[in-house]
């Protein structure tokens, strides 16, 4: 199972690929929409990429609760 650090690193690569944000700027306290230029459509892409990478299911209802990178990391740690 991936560690919190590995998950953060993986999410940073995904956000970089989708939104072009440098990986070092993707930190736990950053908001996807406000800080990382990930709009609601791109968030769907982030979620799908994270599901594949970390072998986890993130239901559509859950996505709205993932406001920050930390929220996503915590969800993946708890559910993978």
């Amino acid at each position: 199972m991936a560690t919190q650090e590995e998950i953060l690193e993986g999410l940073a690569e995904i956000v970089n690929e989708i939104a072009g944000i440098p990986t070092e700027d993707v930190q736990l306290d950053k908001s996807f929409t406000d800080d990382l230029d990930v709009d609601s459509l791109s968030m769907v892409e982030v979620v799908v990429a994270a599901e594949e990478r970390f072998d986890v299911k993130i239901p559509d209802d859950e996505v709205k609760n993932l406001k920050t990178v930390g929220d996503a990391v915590n969800y993946i740690v708890a559910n993978s």
Binding site: L41, S42, V44, E45, V48, E51
Partner: peptide, 10 residues
């Protein structure tokens, strides 16, 4: 289904 881009329509 899951892999169809959410950007497809726009």
């Amino acid at each position: 289904v899951r892999r169809v881009s959410p950007h497809t329509v726009p």
